[in-house]
Structures are given as C-alpha cells and as structure tokens.
Amino acid sequence: MALDHQTVKNIARLARLHIDESNVERYAVELSRILDFVEQMNRVDTQDVIPLAHPQEGRLRLRDDLVTETNQRDSLQKAAPEKEAGLYLVPKVIE
C-alpha cells in the first residue's frame, strides 16, 4: 500500500502528531514500506479463522463496588504542566 501525502497528513492529524511539510514525503515512503512489509500476511488464507485478541482468552474478573481510593489530588497534580484551583488547565476549548 503506497500512502499519498494527503493520507499521511490525515493519519498524523488523527494521531495528533504535527509533521513538517518537508517530512511528509519521508513519512510516506517509510510508512508505505512498512505497510508493504506487513501485507505479507495476505500470503495466508485466514478466512473463517476467529481473530485472537488475547493470548489467554480468559473471562473478565469483576470487583466489588467499593470506594477504595481517597483524595490524591495534590500528589497526582504535582506533575501537571498547568493547573489552578485544582483544575488542569488547557488552551480554550470551543464547543
């Protein structure tokens, strides 16, 4: 699969990765090569094979509905880039 420039930009946007215009071509080439490589998978017929999401295929364990966590705000927000009044601050969100 050869990716065109627009597709590369769309993926980057979806993944929230800024890429300079000058690097788009390089990404297109690299990613296309990797996609060609992984497409070797098509050598094997997998029709009717049930996808395997997880090596164990176990069932979900459920926990009791108990409040076990206490207020850790100060400790958790030490690492916050910008905060005020207990809130994490981000550039203005417009709805």
């Binding site: 992984v38 998978m41 098509n42 094997v44 997998t46 094979v49 049930i50 996808p51 395997l52 999401a53 090596p55």
Partner: peptide, 13 residues
C-alpha cells in the same frame, strides 16, 4: 490489517 493480524495470531498460537 488489524483483524487479519489477529486471525494470523490465532494460527501462530
């Protein structure tokens, strides 16, 4: 891609 790879994953297992 994704489903195909998961199917292959089962064959490998």
């Amino acid at each position: 891609y994704y489903v195909k790879a998961q199917q292959l994953r089962r064959l490998i297992a």
